[in-house]
Design a protein around this nucleic acid. Structure first.
Length: 284
DNA sequence: AGCCAGGGTCTGC
DNA sequence: GCAGACCATGGC
């Protein structure tokens, strides 16, 4: 476990001595689209149907208006705090390229988002850029999500999106992805795609299931599995990762990293986006 | 102004 | 099986 202690402090929960965790590196690395940075450096967002503001001071995390029980039940798994990132990073750092990527964002963690939200947001992500993805997701939630006590909006589930017309999704400027979202809604709402079974289903079959949705190809399926279903071995290849592989791993990505390839991918994604010219010939 | 974006589908060889 | 046009939209 990557923290020492979680204790209530008034209405908040303080998590002491959290290791391998940085809010910005985790919440602004292109894996989730609903968090915003506040003026004081904390982050606010909606996940798991809840509003949360979480700050970081020294080695501690402060979960505002959160009971310790809710931290343990909701946010500890969400932020993947039960995984030993020290061990993951040590393994990855045996490779010089991965060491550079990990050193660039040593506090990045792969969040465990809800399956439907991950599937839906990564359908929206296709041939799109991150700022605009965030905008579309925000309008989707404001338009169709449940209003929460703090004024935020939950991510709308398939039951809330069932019955929408393509025009409704054109209105939030989702472009050609509107019918893809609706096809995912249809399959999930009809019970023809049971996302909860994909946590443990054999990977090849899980991929096939997801790719029955129109607009879901290998990359989006891989994202849904990695970010939404906790399948750390999944390895989404977008244009950035394709470039990184081309520039940094002409001989192929190390097979030894397979069990945590998705986490490696996330370090690499964040690194290459901030070092677009890196061709791998660093002297360090 | 134009290229590009956490891609996928469809068509034509 | 594989290349290429096409898809909406807007960030930069």
């Amino acid at each position: 476990m990557d923290y020492e202690q979680a204790m209530g402090m008034g209405n908040d929960t303080v998590v002491r001595r959290v290791r391998h965790f940085d809010l910005e590196q985790t919440l602004d690395c292109g894996q989730c689209f609903r968090w915003r940075k506040n003026a004081d450096g904390s982050y606010s967002g909606v996940a798991l149907g809840r509003e949360l503001t979480v700050g970081q001071r020294g080695g501690d995390l402060i979960f505002h208006d959160t009971a310790p029980g809710d931290f343990r039940r909701l946010w500890r798994p969400y932020f993947d705090l039960d995984r030993d990132y020290g061990a993951v990073k040590r393994a990855l750092c045996s490779d010089s390229v991965m060491r550079r990527a990990v050193d660039f964002c040593p506090g990045m963690r792969v969040a465990r988002q809800e399956p439907w939200e991950a599937l839906c947001t990564f359908i929206i992500s296709q041939n799109n850029n991150i700022p605009r993805i965030k905008g579309i997701v925000q309008r989707l939630c404001e338009g169709f999500g449940r209003l929460l006590p703090g004024g935020g909006f939950a991510f709308p589930g398939p039951e809330r999106l069932a019955g929408l017309q393509p025009q409704d999704l054109a209105d939030i400027r989702s472009g050609f992805r509107a019918r893809y979202i609706l096809d995912a809604v249809r399959l999930v709402h009809a019970g023809e795609l049971e996302l909860d079974t994909l946590y443990t289903l054999e990977l090849a079959r899980a991929r096939e299931s997801l790719m029955r949705v129109k607009g879901v190809g290998p990359k989006v399926a891989e994202c849904a599995l990695l970010y939404g279903l906790g399948r750390a071995e999944c390895f989404p290849v977008d244009v950035w990762i394709a470039r990184a592989l081309e520039q940094l791993y002409p001989g192929g990505f190390p097979a030894a990293f397979a069990p945590v390839a998705g986490i490696a991918q996330q370090y690499l994604f964040h690194y290459i986006r901030h070092h677009p010219g890196d061709s791998g010939n660093s002297k360090e």
